[in-house]
Structure formats: structure tokens, C-alpha cells
């Protein structure tokens, strides 16, 4: 079966969805990403959907699931490049993906992830003496 490739770039995972997503493919992506976040220790997941002509409730739910799971695994998911027509349709459908972070394009999405990782590092460094006094 086809699978959507997942690239690792620094502390992030990159996914570009370029095919018409059928449900099994979406489910496989969710599973693969979950595995990969853990195995790679990624801090961010960037999903580029600029090639997607539609996002229906199933794909929408998959995106929300990925965001939810990755958050639990301490990684931030950013969905980038949603087309206007797709966004209008999703809202009309009643799906506003409240837990999902978004950005206009891959570049902005990466910036968002980097900023978040930098903040986490800084906070982590500041917290370290209190949390792990022996370090």
C-alpha cells in the first residue's frame, strides 16, 4: 500500500500530502507519524496540505488527531498551506480544527516550530536548576 513519506529535518518532521487522500492512507499517516515522533524525538510536525483540493471530515479529523497525539508526545503540529476554498468548505462543514496550529506556508510553519523549540529550550534551561537540582 502507498504511504505518505515523512522527512526528518533538524528537530522537525515534514509531511507533504500530494495525493488525493483516501481514508486508509490518512489512517496510515496518523500511525506512521506517531511512531516517527517517538523514534526520532521530533519537537515539531509540519504537514503541508497546499496540494489538497478537499479536506472532508475524515481527513480533518485525522489532522486533529495527529495534532492531539503529537501534543501528548511533546511535539507541535502545524498544518500549512490550506487553500481558501478548502478552508471555507471546512468551516461550512462545521469543522474548525480548534486544536490545530496553522500557518500560511511551509516557511512560516517552520519558523513557528523553531520559535517554539527555542522557547522550550530557554524555559528548560531556566527551569533546570529547580527541577533537576543535581544537574
Amino acid at each position: 500500500m502507498d504511504r505518505i513519506p515523512i522527512l526528518k529535518l533538524g528537530h522537525s518532521l515534514l509531511v507533504t500530502i500530494q495525493v488525493d487522500m483516501h481514508d486508509r492512507l490518512a489512517m496510515a499517516l496518523e500511525e506512521d507519524l506517531t511512531q516517527k515522533i517517538v523514534s526520532s524525538g521530533a519537537k515539531g510536525v509540519l504537514i503541508d496540505i497546499s496540494a489538497l483540493e478537499i479536506v472532508d471530515s475524515f481527513i480533518g479529523r485525522t489532522l486533529a488527531n495527529i495534532a492531539g497525539v503529537s501534543r501528548m508526545l511533546d511535539a507541535d503540529t502545524v498544518v500549512v498551506g490550506m487553500r481558501p476554498a478548502v478552508a471555507i468548505t471546512l468551516v461550512e462543514l462545521g469543522l474548525s480544527l480548534p486544536g490545530v496550529r496553522t500557518a500560511l506556508n511551509a516557511e512560516r510553519g517552520m519558523a513557528l516550530i523553531s520559535r517554539r523549540v527555542a522557547e522550550a529550550d530557554r524555559d528548560g534551561a531556566a527551569d533546570a536548576p529547580d527541577v533537576h537540582g543535581d544537574e
Binding site: E53, I54, D56, S57, F58, R83, I88, T89, L90, E92
Partner: peptide, 14 residues
């Protein structure tokens, strides 16, 4: 229109 196309395709998918 593009938006209307997207809407009907999405509805059909559901």
C-alpha cells in the same frame, strides 16, 4: 466556481 466545486466534492465525499 472553485469554492462551489470544493463544497460539492466535499459533500459527495462525506
Amino acid at each position: 466556481s472553485l469554492v462551489d466545486q470544493t463544497k460539492i466534492i466535499t459533500a459527495a465525499s462525506e
